[in-house]
Design a protein around this nucleic acid. Sequence first.
DNA 1: AATAGAATGCCAAATATTTATCATTTAGGT
DNA 2: ACCTAAATGATAAATATTTGGCATTCTATT
Lengths: 234, 234
Amino acid sequence: MLDLLQFGSPRLTDLISADLNYALARLGRDVSYSDGQLIHSRGDDNRGISIVREGAVRIGVIGIDGSFITTSIFGVGQCIGEFTLFAGLPRTHDVSALGECTVQQIPAAPFLALFDSEPELAQALLHLSLLRTHSLLEFSDDFRRLPKQVHVAKFLLQVAESAADPAELQCLQEELAYIFGVSRVSMGKFLKSLQSEGLILLGYRKIRIPDLPLLRAWVSQRTLVAPLAPKARS
Amino acid sequence: MLDLLQFGSPRLTDLISADLNYALARLGRDVSYSDGQLIHSRGDDNRGISIVREGAVRIGVIGIDGSFITTSIFGVGQCIGEFTLFAGLPRTHDVSALGECTVQQIPAAPFLALFDSEPELAQALLHLSLLRTHSLLEFSDDFRRLPKQVHVAKFLLQVAESAADPAELQCLQEELAYIFGVSRVSMGKFLKSLQSEGLILLGYRKIRIPDLPLLRAWVSQRTLVAPLAPKARS
DNA sequence: AATAGAATGCCAAATATTTATCATTTAGGT
DNA sequence: ACCTAAATGATAAATATTTGGCATTCTATT
């Protein structure tokens, strides 16, 4: 699944050293959940960090009609709950098990103790949080200032550049439509127009990008702001 | 001016102790800028933190047509540049002086040294970053799942709750329209409809909220997710 | 190879939004 | 008290989007 929190966002466990990973793993305790079981509820005010250790969890909110609206899906190594520790907020999302899963639950006190003694952990958490802020901010800026077609192209480019296979994105048109807050018909129209310019190839459950540099150039020309490379190139 | 980064977001200097403020103030050097002068450019890869000490700065990007599109305005005590230090990103925005201003420029090395020795600083930065992530995420979730009218009402409520005077918001309909990515005409329609329900009173350069609890209840009923209190209530 | 479910393509009527003007109101400066 | 620039209100034609329905394509499973 495609969402604004995920793409290009590393896992906490990949950002810290083996030693720190070891120290972290010793905190709290692992809890297993069965498919669909509720792990956290929006509004709860228990403070603590949760790290997915096996399987995956679904993050979202329960909507007006009682349906679960997914914001993101977090897999092994990703963490939840920073808000409760550092932003003085209650749980902002409902979190439930997506299949069988195991989540390491770390209460506030031991986590904060480790945090205070290991600046590396602080840097890693800041790194994650700032990358997310950046993604969200860039998306919302783009949303308002770019023509939708260009914005969609830029988004696909970003997803491609952080994907395992940049030439073939696994995504549904419906997912894209949801992300942009438009109907499937509209998204179909945007995508088709990009296809007719030779930038993408629409397939079943996938979008192929035959010429990544071409797409990059096309987007760059239409946004006229320096395209941000993840690490500044020399 | 109204924007997604600002409301409810405290200043760095308010989040840390007097001692730490003092230590922070001794780093780097203060630089004065004249109105309109460029402080940072998107794409630059110089690393460092900037703290506004006098006046204010405008943060944005230079658009396709060369015009400056404002993302936010930062005043005294607010900081810029976390991305460059902790997220491995080049400058993401153009920053220019809004009137005469003074900005404390702190290079990466001394800032990181202080960061590593003072977990309080790490906590404060995380606090800021997470609050922003939260605002942006909540806004984009709401954008997709709520009827626009309800979303506008919720946004006004949030602005009111973090404003000096919750009963009277200083904002232009055009600003609101820009934030929501719609035309002034559409925003006018939404606002008028809220006015006709007795929730707000439209004025010149302002919106009055005669009955905050009423608005809160109205929004709450239509969003049906626990309204997040800034600090969890007991 | 047949089949079912999921995803995409396509279409037109209904609805919503934008664009482009112009009138009116408001606050601040002279 | 007047005048001006800025903001809001109002309107209609032009565009764009959504909704709903149905046909087609694709993939995995039988």
